[in-house]
Amino acid sequence: MGTDSKPKESSGKGKGKQAASGADDGASKGKGKGGKSSDAKGKINEAYKKLQDGWLSNGDKVPPAEFAKIAAEYSECPSGKKGSDLGWFPRGKMAGPFQDVAFSTPIGATSAPFKSTHGYHIILCKGRKN
Protein backbone atom coordinates (compact mmCIF):
# COMPACT_ATOMS: atom_id res chain seq x y z
CA MET A 1 0.00 0.00 0.00
CA GLY A 2 1.12 1.37 -1.44
CA THR A 3 3.17 3.53 0.91
CA ASP A 4 7.92 7.60 1.63
CA SER A 5 11.32 8.85 2.22
CA LYS A 6 13.88 6.15 2.57
CA PRO A 7 17.52 6.96 2.03
CA LYS A 8 18.85 5.92 -1.32
CA GLU A 9 21.42 3.20 -1.34
CA SER A 10 24.85 4.08 -2.63
CA SER A 11 25.10 0.88 -4.64
CA GLY A 12 22.90 0.30 -7.66
CA LYS A 13 22.95 -3.41 -6.82
CA GLY A 14 20.89 -3.28 -3.62
CA LYS A 15 17.77 -5.31 -3.24
CA GLY A 16 14.76 -4.29 -1.22
CA LYS A 17 11.99 -6.31 0.27
CA GLN A 18 8.85 -4.34 -0.20
CA ALA A 19 5.28 -5.06 0.69
CA ALA A 20 3.05 -2.97 -1.46
CA SER A 21 -0.60 -2.61 -2.17
CA GLY A 22 -1.92 -0.91 -5.23
CA ALA A 23 -5.34 0.10 -6.33
CA ASP A 24 -5.29 -0.26 -10.10
CA ASP A 25 -6.73 2.77 -11.80
CA GLY A 26 -7.09 0.88 -15.07
CA ALA A 27 -5.13 3.46 -17.06
CA SER A 28 -2.21 1.16 -17.73
CA LYS A 29 -4.43 -1.69 -18.85
CA GLY A 30 -6.84 0.33 -20.95
CA LYS A 31 -9.80 -0.63 -18.76
CA GLY A 32 -12.48 1.80 -17.78
CA LYS A 33 -12.58 5.51 -18.37
CA GLY A 34 -13.19 8.51 -16.21
CA GLY A 35 -14.49 7.38 -12.83
CA LYS A 36 -12.25 4.35 -12.29
CA SER A 37 -9.15 6.49 -11.67
CA SER A 38 -10.89 8.66 -9.12
CA ASP A 39 -12.36 5.56 -7.43
CA ALA A 40 -8.87 4.06 -7.14
CA LYS A 41 -7.47 7.31 -5.75
CA GLY A 42 -10.26 7.48 -3.19
CA LYS A 43 -9.67 3.86 -2.22
CA ILE A 44 -5.90 4.33 -1.74
CA ASN A 45 -6.50 7.48 0.31
CA GLU A 46 -9.00 5.59 2.49
CA ALA A 47 -6.46 2.81 3.08
CA TYR A 48 -3.77 5.37 3.94
CA LYS A 49 -6.13 7.10 6.36
CA LYS A 50 -6.59 3.77 8.17
CA LEU A 51 -2.82 3.46 8.44
CA GLN A 52 -2.55 7.06 9.68
CA ASP A 53 -5.33 6.66 12.23
CA GLY A 54 -3.87 3.41 13.52
CA TRP A 55 -0.16 4.19 13.59
CA LEU A 56 1.28 6.94 11.43
CA SER A 57 -0.39 9.87 13.17
CA ASN A 58 1.31 8.76 16.40
CA GLY A 59 4.69 8.49 14.72
CA ASP A 60 4.57 4.71 14.99
CA LYS A 61 5.63 2.26 12.33
CA VAL A 62 2.89 0.10 10.86
CA PRO A 63 3.31 -3.54 11.93
CA PRO A 64 3.71 -5.73 8.81
CA ALA A 65 0.78 -7.95 9.85
CA GLU A 66 -1.52 -4.91 10.12
CA PHE A 67 -0.27 -3.54 6.79
CA ALA A 68 -1.06 -6.93 5.24
CA LYS A 69 -4.62 -6.87 6.63
CA ILE A 70 -5.29 -3.43 5.16
CA ALA A 71 -3.64 -4.45 1.87
CA ALA A 72 -5.84 -7.55 1.68
CA GLU A 73 -8.90 -5.39 2.28
CA TYR A 74 -8.10 -2.58 -0.17
CA SER A 75 -5.70 -3.91 -2.80
CA GLU A 76 -6.93 -4.64 -6.30
CA CYS A 77 -3.60 -6.23 -7.19
CA PRO A 78 -3.32 -10.05 -7.30
CA SER A 79 -0.64 -9.80 -4.59
CA GLY A 80 -3.25 -8.29 -2.25
CA LYS A 81 -4.50 -11.75 -1.32
CA LYS A 82 -1.13 -12.47 0.28
CA GLY A 83 -0.91 -9.15 2.08
CA SER A 84 0.70 -7.53 -0.96
CA ASP A 85 4.15 -8.86 -0.10
CA LEU A 86 6.20 -8.55 -3.28
CA GLY A 87 9.24 -10.27 -1.84
CA TRP A 88 12.81 -9.26 -2.61
CA PHE A 89 13.54 -7.47 -5.85
CA PRO A 90 16.63 -5.75 -7.28
CA ARG A 91 16.87 -2.24 -8.63
CA GLY A 92 15.76 -2.13 -12.22
CA LYS A 93 12.98 -4.69 -11.87
CA MET A 94 10.14 -2.32 -10.96
CA ALA A 95 8.89 0.60 -13.05
CA GLY A 96 10.05 4.20 -12.41
CA PRO A 97 8.04 5.76 -9.60
CA PHE A 98 7.47 2.44 -7.84
CA GLN A 99 11.19 1.67 -7.72
CA ASP A 100 12.06 5.24 -6.72
CA VAL A 101 9.67 5.16 -3.77
CA ALA A 102 10.56 1.59 -2.79
CA PHE A 103 14.28 2.36 -2.56
CA SER A 104 13.83 5.75 -0.92
CA THR A 105 11.48 4.60 1.88
CA PRO A 106 13.37 3.92 5.13
CA ILE A 107 13.36 0.34 6.34
CA GLY A 108 10.30 -0.19 8.52
CA ALA A 109 8.59 2.94 7.19
CA THR A 110 5.43 3.32 5.12
CA SER A 111 5.26 5.54 2.06
CA ALA A 112 2.61 8.10 1.32
CA PRO A 113 0.22 7.09 -1.48
CA PHE A 114 1.65 7.57 -4.96
CA LYS A 115 0.73 6.77 -8.53
CA SER A 116 2.70 4.69 -11.02
CA THR A 117 1.84 3.42 -14.47
CA HIS A 118 0.18 0.45 -12.75
CA GLY A 119 -2.09 2.37 -10.40
CA TYR A 120 -1.91 3.76 -6.88
CA HIS A 121 0.32 2.30 -4.20
CA ILE A 122 1.52 2.51 -0.62
CA ILE A 123 4.79 0.78 0.21
CA LEU A 124 5.96 -0.70 3.49
CA CYS A 125 9.70 -1.29 3.24
CA LYS A 126 10.52 -4.41 5.25
CA GLY A 127 14.24 -4.48 4.58
CA ARG A 128 17.13 -4.49 2.12
CA LYS A 129 19.98 -6.79 1.38
CA ASN A 130 23.05 -6.32 -0.74
Rank of each mutant, 00 (worst) to 15 (best):
A23M: 12
M1Q: 12
E73C: 04
S111G: 14
S11V: 00
W88I: 07
K17E: 02
E73L: 08
D4T: 04
P113V: 03
H118E: 12
E9W: 03
S21T: 11
L51R: 09
K126I: 02
F67E: 03
S79V: 11
F67P: 04
H121G: 01
E9R: 08
E76T: 15
K6G: 15
P106A: 07
P90R: 06
Y48R: 06
V101Q: 09
K129H: 01
G83A: 10
L51P: 10
E66P: 06
N130Y: 05
A23V: 15
G59C: 13
S5D: 10
K15P: 00
P64T: 01
E66F: 13
I44F: 06
S10K: 12
V62T: 10
I107M: 09
G119I: 12
Q52F: 06
K129E: 14
P106W: 02
K129M: 08
E66H: 07
S28P: 01
F103D: 01
A95K: 14
Y48W: 15
P97C: 01
Y74H: 11
W88N: 10
K61W: 05
Q52N: 15
I70V: 14
V62D: 03
A109M: 04
A23P: 02
S111Q: 13
S5V: 07
D4I: 11
K69M: 06
D24K: 11
I44Q: 01
K126G: 05
T3H: 02
G54D: 12
G127S: 05
A95I: 07
S37F: 02
K33C: 09
S28C: 14
S21N: 12
K36V: 15
A102I: 02
K15A: 05
S11W: 00
K69C: 13
S84E: 02
Q99H: 01
K82V: 11
D24R: 07
G32P: 03
I122K: 07
I70P: 12
K81G: 12
G83S: 07
I44W: 00
I107L: 05
K69I: 06
G30C: 14
G127M: 02
L86V: 06
L51N: 10
R128H: 01
E73H: 13
S21H: 06
K17G: 00
